[in-house]
C-alpha cells in the first residue's frame, strides 16, 4: 500500500507517496530529483548513496522509504548555501584534489560531514574509520584524507 511519507529534506518539509518496499534512494532520485545521491552497488557496500538521516550517515539503498517518515534528511544538494556556493567540506574536496571521476564524491562528502559534526577534530584513524564504508576507485584516498583534514581545520576556525 502506497503511503504518504513526510520528512524534512535539506531544510524544507516534503510529503511524497512511497511504496512499502521502495528504497529511499529511489524516492530521492526519482520523485524528489535529488540525483546527487548516487547508486554504486545497491547493497550497502560502497557508500556512494550515503545521506544523513537525523545526524547519522545512512546508505539510502538499504533504507526503506516509508521509514523516512518524521526524519530530517540531508543530501548533497542540501550542503551548499541558498545560492550556488559550495560548503566548506565541498570546497575542501575541490581544493585538495579529493575528486576524480566524482561518482563516490557526494557519499564521501556526506560521510565527512557526519564525521565532522560528531568529531570536529578527528585523528587520521578516526577519519579512516568514518570513511571506511565509502569506496573510491580513482583516488587511492590520500587526497580525500587531506580534504577532510583541510575541512576540519577551517570549520574549527569558523566556530
Amino acid at each position: 500500500m502506497t503511503q504518504i511519507v513526510s520528512f524534512v529534506l535539506n531544510g524544507a518539509p516534503v510529503q511524497v507517496p512511497a511504496d512499502p518496499h521502495q528504497r529511499l534512494i529511489d524516492l530521492l532520485r526519482g520523485p524528489l530529483h535529488q540525483t546527487g545521491t548516487k547508486e554504486g552497488c545497491g547493497q550497502g557496500e560502497c557508500g556512494a548513496c550515503t545521506v544523513i538521516i537525523d545526524g547519522r550517515p545512512v546508505n539510502a539503498c538499504l533504507y526503506p522509504a516509508p521509514e523516512a517518515d518524521g526524519t530530517t534528511i540531508t543530501t548533497i544538494e542540501g550542503l551548499g548555501g541558498d545560492n550556488t556556493e559550495l560548503s566548506t567540506i565541498q570546497r575542501a574536496f575541490v581544493e585538495c584534489g579529493g575528486i576524480q571521476c566524482g561518482y563516490c564524491t557526494p557519499g564521501m562528502i556526506l560521510s565527512t560531514k557526519a564525521l565532522l559534526d560528531r568529531r570536529p577534530d578527528p585523528t587520521e584513524a578516526e577519519i579512516r574509520q568514518g570513511l571506511a564504508g565509502n569506496l573510491c576507485r580513482c583516488t587511492g584516498y590520500v587526497q580525500i584524507i587531506e580534504s577532510v583534514k583541510w575541512a576540519a581545520e577551517r570549520l574549527r576556525d569558523k566556530s
Binding site: T35, E39, Q90, G102
Partner: peptide, 19 residues
C-alpha cells in the same frame, strides 16, 4: 590547481548516465 570539473561533482550536479 584544482580541477575545473570538480565543483559540480562536489555539488552532486554533474550529470552521469544514471542521472
Amino acid at each position: 590547481t584544482p580541477r575545473p570539473d570538480s565543483a559540480d561533482k562536489a555539488a552532486g550536479q554533474a550529470v552521469y548516465i544514471h542521472d
